[in-house]
Design a protein around this nucleic acid. Structure first.
Length: 619
RNA sequence: GGUUCCAUAGCUCAACUGGAUAGAGCAACAGAUUUCUAAUCUGUAGGUUCCAGGUUCGAGCCCUGGUGGGAUCACCA
């Protein structure tokens, strides 16, 4: 870091001295692997000051730098690219510093506090693959922020109330025969999910019967005469299918028997009906038990949990406040709105005519609650990109309300996880259950390890832990290595493949290093005379690691760390393959290589730690 | 339809935010185990970066217009 700074200063001096040009922002790049050199300065922007050809300009600067900066051993020029070659001594010093001081990450977040909300499950269903991406991203991102010096509060907002929970409750009450997790042997969240599905099944049956009835037929006929239906007909779409899905909500809200029962239950819940509350508490407890074990196996945790049942009314006071300050306005029917048309968005409702709050109102309330609780500098929501619009609106509203913390809101938006057959969303029934998926990858790890037959001397407990580390690691890495904001494809086959760019490959590299260090016993850092290419490439990669961590933090993207660690592991394997480490003839060379190996292992472990992935000592 | 995100090798993803000859892994083919762990390594093949313009020394990346796909546009959460 210091070197980079002084190199920049010297370059500014060079430009001043050579061309009388006061440069402000000079940046060096890593030299492309196809060219010799370590750092590259692009000289094209300076041509209008030098008034010389690119090659000559580069040569001027190169000569100046070589004379004034001792670390530069030589330079070469390709067109307008000045490639600086740093001395072996420089890289050996880097290696020495790394060995002595370990991984040093500049603390860009020191003194800053950040609340990261992630996971945020509904309590009516077990977690699925989409949730895993959320949890793994959220947790990893917290680790990365902490490594950058931030004080991080890992926050979970549990959506424990509302119509969807009542659906599970009602179905259990009607058809559950007092079934419990104990009596059925089903994990609590899955049991509650089972009754949610049961509700939907019963509702669909009821809806299906109605559609065939007189009322249903006449509603359909009315729909067929509408102008919208005409258009669809011309397009050749299945009218009945469209009607069926479009009318579903109306049917649920106005006609359905079971629908009115469940709405009544929600109302009773809001009125504090003792029986309903007791049932709600009982079933939520089952779900929390289930979630706890899923979270534990996934290796994520929280510092602060909010329950929506406690917070869903909080926004109302702020709505009132906004009304007096003029941020909001009221319509004749009593509903309260905010006008965002100046910001290119629509008018949004923030409170219904009957005085109840909507989704965005609750988020306004919890944002304020968070700030009162933590006085954080910024707060981050790890939520899927289907809510991009929602968070844009939320931030604008908070600004309109003159909340100073509004500026610190960031939506860490991630893309949906697709399955090869099609997209994966709970309402379409093609979910991959989180618990089943974890079980599957761990089993695959077991199978593969047994096939390789290297498990001698390990106890059953150690093996069990190993399979867990490998399987869960593979799953997490598969989800984390992809740029968070991009939609990604989850291929079950590929995710449990342990070859190539996967966690087991990196973990394998780590165990290899561990066994190397065990065999070596003791050694100390010694500088050899020369540096070969593989050694140097490892030093370069390890040198770049801290800035990858910083980049990941400021770009909100754990995948940068995953890629940095993978590159390092790959480089080590090559290095390991081509050079005998323990068998090196000179002890200096042997010690040096062992030091590099050790440092490499520590970097891998550190990087995987930030991703929330464990590394085994043996496998 | 409005807004917004995306499009890179047969497949899954990279490309240090505008730099050089666009890189990995998988799949395919050809090789390498007297070894500190072969879950490894080496090589071959694979590209008009969706299309058409523009900006400049220089574009996968920025701008404009298309094409194709996703999301969103609820007094649902």
């Amino acid at each position: 870091m210091e070197f980079q700074q002084s190199l920049k200063t010297q370059t500014v001096n060079a430009l001043k001295h050579l061309y009388n040009y006061d440069a402000t922002d000079i940046s060096f790049e890593k030299t492309n692997a196809n060219f010799t050199g370590d750092l590259t300065l692009v000289v094209f922007p300076f041509l209008r000051f030098s008034k010389k050809k690119p090659e000559d300009t580069a040569n001027d600067i190169g000569l100046y730098l070589k004379e004034h900066v001792s670390e530069i051993a030589d330079f070469n020029i390709v067109k307008g690219f000045l490639n600086l070659e740093l001395s072996s001594d420089f890289w050996l010093d880097v290696a020495k510093t790394q060995t002595e001081q370990g991984i040093q990450i500049p603390l860009i977040g020191k003194g800053k506090k950040v609340v990261v909300e992630y996971s945020s499950p509904n309590t009516n269903k077990p977690l699925h693959l989409g949730h895993i991406r959320n949890n793994v991203l959220g947790y990893s991102f917290c680790q990365i922020l902490e490594a950058n010096g931030y004080e991080v509060i890992k926050n979970n907002l549990v959506n424990d109330r509302g119509i969807h929970i009542c659906k599970s409750m009602l179905a259990w009450q009607k058809w559950g025969n007092n079934e419990t997790p104990e009596s059925s042997g089903i994990k609590g969240d899955h049991l509650v999910g089972k009754y949610y599905v049961e509700f939907e099944k019963q509702f669909q049956a009821e809806y299906g019967t109605w559609l065939k009835s007189e009322d249903g037929t006449s509603a359909y006929n009315t729909f067929c005469k509408s102008p919208a239906a005409e258009k669809l007909k011309n397009k050749g779409e299945d009218l009945f299918k469209t009607f069926k899905s479009e009318y579903k909500n109306t049917y649920f809200n106005t006609i359905s028997q079971i629908g009115s029962e469940v709405k009544q239950m929600l109302q009773q819940w809001e009125e504090g009906n003792k029986e309903v509350l007791a049932l709600w508490q009982k079933m939520n407890a089952w779900v929390y038990d289930g979630f706890a074990s899923t979270y534990q196996r996934l290796g994520v945790s929280f510092d602060k949990i909010y329950y929506e049942s406690d917070t869903y009314l909080l926004g109302k006071a702020i709505v009132k406040e906004g009304l007096t300050t003029g941020a909001f306005y009221q319509k004749e029917d009593g509903s309260i709105w905010v006008d965002l048309t100046e910001d290119g968005l629509d008018e949004k409702i923030v409170q219904r005519a009957d005085g109840t709050s909507v989704y965005i109102t609750q988020d306004i309330g919890t944002a304020d609650l968070k700030y009162n609780d933590f006085k954080m500098d910024s707060f981050i929501y790890v939520v899927g990109n289907e809510q991009d619009y929602h968070f844009k609106v939320l931030q604008l509203i908070l600004k309109k309300l003159n909340k100073t913390y509004a500026e610190g809101l960031y939506h860490l938006s991630y893309g949906m996880v697709d399955l090869p057959e099609g997209k994966m969303k709970s309402r379409e029934g093609t979910v991959v259950d989180a618990d089943e998926l974890m079980e599957e990858v761990v089993n695959t790890a077991k199978q593969q390890t047994e096939e390789l037959g290297k498990t001698e001397g390990m106890s059953d407990d150690e093996l069990k832990e190993l399979y867990e580390t490998l399987g869960i690691g593979a799953l997490k890495y598969y989800l984390l290595k992809v740029d968070a904001k991009k939609r990604m494809l989850y291929d079950p086959k590929e995710s449990i493949d342990f070859q190539g760019n996967t966690a087991p490959f990196v973990q394998y590299t780590y165990t290899r290093i561990s066994s190397l260090l065990r065999a070596a016993n003791n050694f100390q850092f010694e500088k050899p005379e020369v540096l070969n290419d593989e050694e140097k490439s490892i030093i370069v990669l390890m040198n770049a690691y801290p800035s990858a961590v910083n980049a990941a933090a400021s770009n909100y993207n754990p995948s940068e760390i995953a890629n940095a660690v993978y590159d390092l592991a790959k480089a080590f394997n090559k290095f390991y393959h081509e050079h005998s480490i323990l068998g090196a003839k000179e002890s200096t060379v042997r010690n040096f290589r062992l030091s590099l190996s050790k440092q490499c292992g520590e970097t891998i472990k550190h990087g995987f730690g930030l991703l929330g992935i464990n590394v085994p000592d043996r496998m």
